[in-house]
Design a protein around this nucleic acid. Sequence first.
DNA 1: GTGAATGCAAAAGCTTTGCAACCTA
DNA 2: TAGGTTGCAAAGCTTTTGCATTCAC
Lengths: 129, 129
Amino acid sequence: MRRLTRQRKAVLEVVREAKNHPDAAWIYQEVRKRIPRISLGTVYRNLEALVEEGYLIPITRAGEATRYDANTHPHLHLVCEGCGALVDLEVELPDLLAPARLAHPGVEVRSVEVTYRGLCPECRRALKG
Amino acid sequence: MRRLTRQRKAVLEVVREAKNHPDAAWIYQEVRKRIPRISLGTVYRNLEALVEEGYLIPITRAGEATRYDANTHPHLHLVCEGCGALVDLEVELPDLLAPARLAHPGVEVRSVEVTYRGLCPECRRALKG
DNA sequence: GTGAATGCAAAAGCTTTGCAACCTA
DNA sequence: TAGGTTGCAAAGCTTTTGCATTCAC
């Protein structure tokens, strides 16, 4: 059975309180303020468990450490090509699963992950005036 | 100026001939059949260059090596939760960029990447009969 | 000829793992 | 008390980098 330890609780809290999709190193640094003797390995093990349990969503990008998102209600991500920031976009979506389901009857589609690339408002202003 | 070396040509050819989105290690192994003294570092440097030039698309997934896709016309990816395979889905898409553009006037959206998760036909049959 | 690209090897991340001690249920 | 979890440290993997040499243009 899975146990609710101080460490697991702290890791989840830190990610929930974070604003910008932190990675394991940042989470480790923050959690150490509460539990100074926690190890990086424990952070990784708990992040993995929390992802499995559905509390966190992992976000991977080429050449970067995995980031974690505690925002569980449906939303999209924008990767800014100017500053590299990962921004949440709250958007009403059409049913994105439908096209794949209709076109591929043999396939079972369970979820979809959508990532936009472009410019965040700040970078757009800086680059285009 | 960028130079067209035997190594760069071979890397691109290997990825184009590959069927299932190979990673750097696999590409290295294949290219060595043609250029035995090529180094893994050169493979990485050329993959990076080919991505920059738009010949290849990098695909990243949590806990896995980056894979490369030479299929440049628009398509989606399905990650099979059964066997882990990364499958191309050829699907007619609605305009996925429109919702984000309408909802976020300050943002400039340039491209979108869509990844489905679910079961490929083989795994679906195996699991559900 | 010139400087981009290569091969080699070392190093730099990020992440995982083995193990004894510890703690939650 | 049982076994999931932790801290620590070492190892594993993928990817990057420094440098002398080579090669494309």
